[in-house]
Design a protein around this nucleic acid. Structure first.
Length: 1065
RNA sequence: GGGCGAUUGGCUCAGUUGGUUAGAGCGCCGCCCUUACAAGGCGGAUGUCACAGGUUCGAGUCCUGUAUCGCCCACCA
């Protein structure tokens, strides 16, 4: 045989990757083009951020996508998986700025916009390369020819087009929004770049005089604040509209809880509630009258005089003011506090910003009015407001101003008292300075209609979310219909395509609309709108840049900000396919087939993709959304680099292989929302796994408990630590996957060992399973084929419902237990018996081939490797005549998906076979228990009804080959050996002849234990069956089953009693 | 504060619409390097299914409450 090859005992996953991944790529097997003869199946990757390397969550996410894609490809779909990366504006720019600061001591302003953006592109290039490298190591079958990036020209065109149409439809407007402002870096920061720190602070109680108090009115209103400096920007004071009702409500709630706690006897809680109630009742006495009076005054339109600023501000009612807290009323600074911002909008009061971007106070405090609700344009009515901040404070930073203002307030007799108070202060992660809420111009998308369309898509079932419960997250968020702020004060991203007009002489003059009309007469790609508030034009351009002098006599300046990253990600399913061009791809592949992602971006991303898809393409972007679990560490904490509990998939792949990693994560993909993955260090010296604890994971060096050597961690900074070998972070969980692959490898090796014997035979045209008639098949053949088909059906249907974990576990059990441990072990006897060999070989080849195909989506490398080897030794394996007539695929990737075309599922055989398995197991158990030497053959007899005997007898040779046990007698009259060890099962009892081998005491002990156990079960059953309610109400099927089971238990008991009697003799 | 979820052997998790004696991987114990596989084979031990009620003939599974843990969102003048 010329093709003889020796296969190593262990599966070499490294060389399998080296061999097949580049081969797949070079042969264009990942590449998809529209093919009218096939149905499309499309997935767009959730584009990983170019901020850093991929983590386990990505490994999971991409494995699950690849499983779908590979299965569908084999099922004959034209499967396309579009890969790509996301520019992740804030995070990426932050990373590069940090690097710039740390390595060169420069800020972005030092090097300027163009240079900064260039540097971020370089960063992006290097990380994109790394990410793609990781994905390839994971062996995913993305169409790399279609790689996209959210800032590339194709995506940019889609972004510009969307912005332009939204602008045209009036869906985009400019408003005001509070952003988290870092005064040191002079930039907006995102919520996740903020840490809350507990600081010691104070409550300052201030009194604001009432203007022109009437008889019975209060003279002044007391408010408490932790930030007295913001009082200069106060534009109203709020109190609760119905303080009595609110207090009643609270009181009732507490009383109810109290009653419940009392009833349940929870004393600690009770005491707490009682204290709470007491406080509340006291408060009623001290504050209620005042608060009611205030509400009355507010409704009467009373105004207050804001101290220091000497500005009139209204007293308003708003439910934000909690009668049970503080003084019961609250000063409102809409431009400097997120809650006050909301109150301010509701109360329609001016928004006064008293801070400049550098954190100093401004003299010309800006006056803003939010246009969403059309409340008064205060600028016109109250010009005096431009002098809100007294001259002497100007230039002072917010914190300095606090001291001065407090001193002034005290001097003016406004300060009532000061209390110590601990409070949470938001601190910038990057600059470590206090974050100030800052009122900024912002572009918004009107969400009312868009959100509704996206909600409808889910409620009417056009978009289905798996698991279903996540639909609630989606709908709840969308139902708020909050307008979407789309501007970001960054340089990295799609620049907002809006141009402002500046007068050449620097004045505030604006051109007339006629001038615009003339200048852009033949340009359908330019639209404009008049901003009433800012008294200026907004000019929107669909593509490219608007020349500075495009409007004769005026200068055009583009908006500095860029679009929210999600604005471009939202278009991902159609932008990657070429929209707005009506490309072949868009027509063929859109809508995509499923979106697979994690739950934290259901709102930010999924919802927005649905609404832009509907808006731009008139169709949902995908009919299915599958939300997979989040991977946590063993403490249930999110994995992150900053904690040191993150795993680099490459480390796992290096140690266990991509197949093992994929199998491991697919095994975890249940429908629960989190899964835990215990994380350990691997000692680089001795290879021992060192448990990672919360304590050692933050240290720069860790000592291996086994070899006592130190290794370094990611925290190593000092030279002495860095000099140590690095301990990688991995998880033993992947051993399971590696071991399984090795098992499959060896089963294949075994199969091929026999298939190779006669290459001529396996190459014959009729060498498939198909031509074998049922008569030629042995019972075990029919059994394994039936089981295979049952499993294949379950697996296929399960994957289509995203039930990954169950599918993978099912197939795992089938492969290992049924195929390897049962079928192959049985087949050994036949494979070694010349006249029985041919059929057994065919069945082995057929089942193995089917298994490889079923497994391929999960573990692509090993399956390709074995499939290719099989192609040499059994080229016709598993193929039907129809298959043979076609050109054979060159890779398992394109092999036809296994389906049971011959209706091989036979539940009777499957059930029958269980008897064989049970008897075999019982014999083996007896041998093990009685310490019968491995090679010593024993005899055994089985007493059972004739129909059971008919199943057992044909298996006689296998008992010998698999358990060194010779079946001597089997049937209703079989006689138990005199000195035997016995076992019972449903409908049968067996005795292993242990003459000269038996440990009688051990046997008696076991039988007595068994007797007790049976007696227990019988008692339980009898009690159940004597219960008339049970026999009357339970379904007949269940009752019959119970009766049969009881009869069987009794028979078993009799057999055990008999065995005991024999042994005692 | 709102929403969602978890609690099952030492560890990490399965457990379909309630229905015989609750499973897996790892770990543990015993025997075996048997010619596919020691990353393996055969056998074994280990569970009051968090707690308290309820519905039901029957509850790990459904309902209510409690405790603990976690995730997401919003936030404490």
């Amino acid at each position: 045989m010329s093709e003889t090859f020796e296969l190593p005992k262990q599966y070499d996953f490294h060389s399998a990757w080296e061999k097949w991944y580049p081969w797949w790529e070079e042969n264009g097997l990942f590449h998809s083009t529209p093919n009218p003869d096939k149905k499309p199946f499309t997935i767009v990757i959730p584009p990983p951020n170019v901020t850093g390397a991929l983590h386990m969550g990505h490994a999971l996410n991409n494995t699950l996508q690849d499983i779908q894609i590979r299965m569908k490809r084999m099922q004959g779909f034209e499967a396309l998986w579009v890969p790509g990366t996301d520019h992740a504006g804030i995070a990426t720019q932050a990373m590069v700025e940090k690097k710039l600061r740390e390595e060169e001591g420069l800020t972005r302003n030092d090097i300027g916009r163009d240079a900064m953006v260039k540097r971020i592109w370089d960063w992006k290039d290097s990380f994109e390369k790394r990410i793609i490298g990781q994905l390839k190591k994971l062996s995913v079958s993305c169409d790399w020819d279609r790689l996209r990036f959210t800032l590339d020209p194709v995506c940019a065109r889609a972004v510009r087009n969307t912005f332009f149409t939204f602008f045209e439809k009036g869906l985009i407007y400019r408003g005001k929004k509070l952003v988290n402002w870092d005064t040191a870096l002079q930039t907006a920061v995102s919520d996740d770049e903020i840490n809350n720190e507990t600081h010691d602070g104070h409550f300052w109680y201030l009194k604001y005089p009432v203007i022109d108090p009437q008889e019975g009115d209060l003279e002044y209103v007391t408010v408490a604040t932790t930030r007295p400096e913001t009082m200069l920007g106060d534009t109203c004071v709020a109190c609760h509209p119905e303080p009595r009702k609110q207090l009643d409500l609270l009181e009732n709630a507490i009383r109810e809880e109290l009653a419940a706690a009392e009833a349940a006897g929870r004393d600690a809680e009770k005491a707490e509630l009682e204290a709470k109630l007491e406080t509340l009742l006291k408060r009623r006495e001290t504050h209620l009258e005042l608060l009611e009076k205030l509400a009355e005054m507010a409704k009467a339109g009373k105004k207050l005089m804001l101290p220091l600023a000497n500005r009139e501000i209204p007293l308003v009612t708003d439910i934000w003011a909690k009668p049970e807290m503080g003084t019961g009323c609250v000063k409102i600074t809409p431009a400097h506090d997120p809650n006050d911002f909301e109150v301010g909008k509701r109360a329609m009061v001016p928004f006064i910003s008293i801070m400049k971007k550098d954190g100093s106070l401004t003299a010309e405090a800006s006056v803003y009015a939010w246009d969403g609700r059309k409340f008064a344009n205060v600028t016109a009515e109250e010009p005096a407001l431009s002098r809100t901040v007294p001259e002497k404070y100007v230039g002072m930073k917010m914190l300095e101003a606090r001291e001065v203002i407090v001193a002034d307030l005290e001097a003016a007799g406004i300060l009532l008292k000061v209390e110590d108070h601990q409070h949470e202060v938001p601190v910038s992660d990057r600059s470590k300075t206090v974050i100030e809420p800052f009122l900024n111009d912002q572009w918004f998308v009107r969400m009312a209609d868009l959100a509704q369309s996206a909600m409808d898509a889910v409620t009417d079932g056009r978009v289905q979310i798996f698991p279903e419960r996540y639909a609630k997250t989606y709908l709840d968020w969308l139902s708020e219909k909050r307008d979407w702020p789309i501007g970001r004060q960054l340089w990295w991203g799609h620049r907002i395509p809006i141009w402002y007009v500046r007068a050449a002489d620097g004045s505030e003059k604006m051109p007339t609309e006629d001038e615009l009309k003339t200048a852009f007469a033949d340009r359908s790609d330019v639209k404009w709108a008049w901003d009433e508030e800012g008294k200026e034009w907004w000019i929107c351009l669909q593509d490219g840049e608007l020349a500075k002098d495009a409007l004769p006599g005026w200068e055009l300046v583009q908006d500095d900000d860029v679009l929210d990253t999600w604005f471009s990600s939202a278009l991902w399913p159609h932008s990657t396919l070429g929209w707005p061009e009506q490309t072949e791809e868009l027509k063929y592949y859109y809508p995509t087939s499923v979106l697979i992602t994690s739950r934290d971006i259901i709102t930010l991303w999924v919802a927005r993709m649905v609404l832009t898809g509907l808006q731009n393409c008139g169709e949902i972007p995908f009919p299915h959304v599958y939300i997979h679990p989040k991977i946590l560490d063993k403490y249930g904490e999110t994995m992150s680099k900053s904690k040191g509990n993150g795993i680099d998939p490459l480390d796992v792949i290096e140690k266990y292989g991509a197949d093992a990693l994929r199998l491991g994560v697919a095994w975890l993909a249940t429908d629960s929302q989190d899964v835990r993955l215990p994380v350990d260090f691997e000692c680089p010296h001795c290879g021992e796994s060192v448990e990672q604890t919360k304590e050692n994971r933050i240290r720069p060096r860790v000592k291996c408990p086994k070899c006592k050597e130190f290794f370094s961690t990611q925290w190593a900074k000092k030279e002495e630590d860095l000099a140590l070998k690095r301990g990688t972070v991995i998880s033993e969980r992947f051993e399971m996957g590696r071991n399984f692959c090795n098992k499959l490898w060896n089963a294949s090796r075994f199969a091929m060992m026999y298939l190779m014997e006669d290459l001529e035979e396996v190459s014959r045209p009729d060498y498939t399973l198909e031509p074998i008639s049922d008569d030629e098949l042995f019972m075990e053949d029919k059994w394994i084929l039936s089981r295979l088909c049952t499993m294949a059906k379950m697996f296929t249907e399960g994957i289509e419902k995203y039930d990954y974990a169950a599918c993978v576990r099912t197939l795992y059990d089938f492969t290992w237990d049924e195929f390897c441990s049962n079928y192959i072990e049985i087949a050994k006897y036949r494979l070694q018996t010349p006249e029985l060999k041919p059929v057994a070989k065919r069945v082995v080849a057929f089942v193995l081939d089917a298994l490889l195909k079923l497994w391929h989506p999960v573990i692509p490398l090993i399956t390709e490797e074995v499939w290719q080897l099989m192609a040499k030794v059994a080229p016709k394996r598993g193929l039907t005549a129809e298959d043979l007539a076609r050109e054979q695929p060159e890779s398992i990737m394109n092999a036809p998906w296994f389906v049971d075309t011959a209706n091989r599922i036979d539940p009777t055989i499957e059930a029958q076979f269980v008897v064989f398995q049970d008897v075999l197991k019982a014999v083996r158990e007896i041998r093990a228990r009685q310490n019968v030497p491995v090679k010593q053959e024993v005899k055994f007899a089985v007493k059972c009804p004739a129909e059971i005997a008919a199943l057992i007898l044909p298996m006689k040779p296998y008992f010998t080959s698999m358990a060194q046990a010779v079946l001597t007698e089997c049937g209703p009259d079989a006689k138990m050996p005199e000195l035997s060890s016995n076992a019972t099962g449903a409908n049968w009892e067996l005795g292993v002849d242990l003459e000269g081998l038996i440990d009688v005491e051990a046997e008696l002990k076991k039988n007595r234990t068994q007797r007790e156990k049976l007696l227990g079960f019988i008692a339980g059953k009898e009690k159940k069956l004597s219960n008339e309610a049970f026999t009357a109400k339970a379904p007949a099927k269940v009752v019959d089953a119970e009766r049969a089971s009881l009869a069987d238990l009794k028979a078993q008991l009799a057999a055990v009693e008999e065995a005991i009697a024999r042994l005692e003799r």
